[in-house]
Nucleic acid binder design. Structure first.
Lengths: 254, 254
DNA sequence: AAAAAGTCTTGATACAAATCAAGCATAGCA
DNA sequence: TGCTATGCTTGATTTGTATCAAGACTTTTT
């Protein structure tokens, strides 16, 4: 399934800290209370509608959160990896999971905490509860932005934005990075069909982004930034954009 | 601008309670601490990026929350009315408003609380903070669903879904209701152009929904439900769907 | 009361993405 | 080593929505 160069290394748990570093209380809570579980590809973690008895988050690997309509269409609401929380809803009594969750990397390691235990901790520690509120607010803004992108960006721009964020996650400047999920899943998440994703890749070639299978080589990060971020209302505030801009010596953006 | 029959009555403040009744702590907090302000149409309430010094919510009228991209496109993220909160972000220190907010009804009455005061209250009352968390979670789910709808529903289905929710807001069964905002704003919110909205109206005629200007007459609510909800992952759980189904004697949807 | 401006609708055309259908790799397996 | 299944890409065609342009109403202005 995955090429040799993409064989997944086991990331040490500390990597998740990179993503949760803005929320030390949550990080500490997860570190001390979680139970680690290993899953194989395609394993369902939980189902939309089930009672949310557990709070899940990703230690290593990739998980997709998706919803199904009665007429058989699927929407990939989020692609989650190290440090991402999968079930905010589990923070509340009598709630149900609001998506399906499935492992989509060869293997994944997930952290899990019984929801009742987590709720008890939150009741006792107002500071941690506050950090969760902020994190939820952050995720909500991300979803709002995805909505905007679907409405105002072209397919190629949305792909470009995803690659930028990937660049940031893999902590690289303009070098070779790898698309970690199958194309048809990524296509769905970006609101397009697999064929359109394929054609969008070719468009990105014109601005110095060469995608070959799962391999992505970026010649000029600035032209990617220019191509994508002019159509985003978060331009200037986007942390991904800022970091990549810092990497580049000749970034023309503000 | 608005026809005679749509002249806006002043809704007593209690109406907002209908929408906030699930969160009595928040309702009580708003009732006792807010300061009422009246605005005219097109008045900006706050701007995307400004420091979030105030917490706003709608007592009466309609407000649009929108974002602008550098290349000049606008996305209407939400259309808010009685009981809706406009600036969740104001709950956190050093935050900025993440959208523009503009009054879009002839007049609007907004409630406002200084952010510092609200934050102090939340620090002292964990129960109210928890209700805010739940409310934010609820709003996040709504945004996620909008994302799904944009991706999987046709223009006509999205309009149909909006009309259903409007039906619910105006607490009516299948009778005549009124579209309370301008068509081009509604079109943007539903991810389409004004012309497409106009053509979608005609499609809805085939299933017994007659839209004439701002007036909407619904012959058979069941066929609207059937037309819209088969393409929604929330089918069966959606509170709007459930209520309208209860109104109808012969609703075939479970 | 006429003119001007705004909103909504309708018609003709253009275009981006979906769909349908092959073809081409690569991986897994007999 | 070939066979088959799967994922990805490419090509031809269709479709839904955007765009461009005009016309029909309303409301506002003068």
């Amino acid at each position: 399934m995955l090429h040799e160069h993409q064989t997944e290394q086991h990331f040490p748990f500390e990597d998740a800290q990179t993503l949760l570093r803005a929320y030390p209380g949550i990080y500490e809570l997860l570190r001390t209370h979680m139970d680690e579980r290993r899953f194989q590809k395609d394993h369902p973690v939980f189902f939309h509608g089930d009672a949310a008895h557990s709070f899940w988050y990703v230690v290593q690997g990739w998980v997709k959160l998706a919803r199904q309509t009665p007429d058989g269409k699927e929407t990939v609401v989020a692609l989650c990896t190290e440090g991402d929380l999968l079930s905010d809803c589990a923070l509340f009594e009598n709630s149900n999971y609001n998506t399906n969750a499935n492992v989509i990397s060869e293997t994944a390691i997930l952290g899990v905490i019984p929801a009742v235990q987590l709720r008890r901790i939150l009741n006792e520690h107002a500071d941690i509860a506050k950090q969760f509120m902020q994190l939820m607010q952050h995720n909500a803004q991300r979803t709002q932005l995805n909505f905007e992108h679907l409405q105002t960006m072209s397919a190629a721009q949305r792909l470009g934005c995803f690659i930028m964020r990937l660049c940031d996650r893999q902590n690289k400047g303009p070098e070779t990075i790898y698309i970690p999920v199958e194309k048809h899943i990524l296509a769905n998440h970006l609101g397009m069909k697999a064929e359109t994703l394929s054609r969008s890749q070719q468009q990105l070639r014109d601005i110095g982004v060469y995608i070959n299978g799962n391999e992505v080589r970026i010649d000029k990060i600035e032209s990617l930034l220019n191509f994508v971020c002019v159509s985003c209302s978060d331009q200037g505030q986007c942390t991904v954009e800022q970091k990549l801009c810092a990497h580049s010596s000749s970034c023309k953006m503000r």
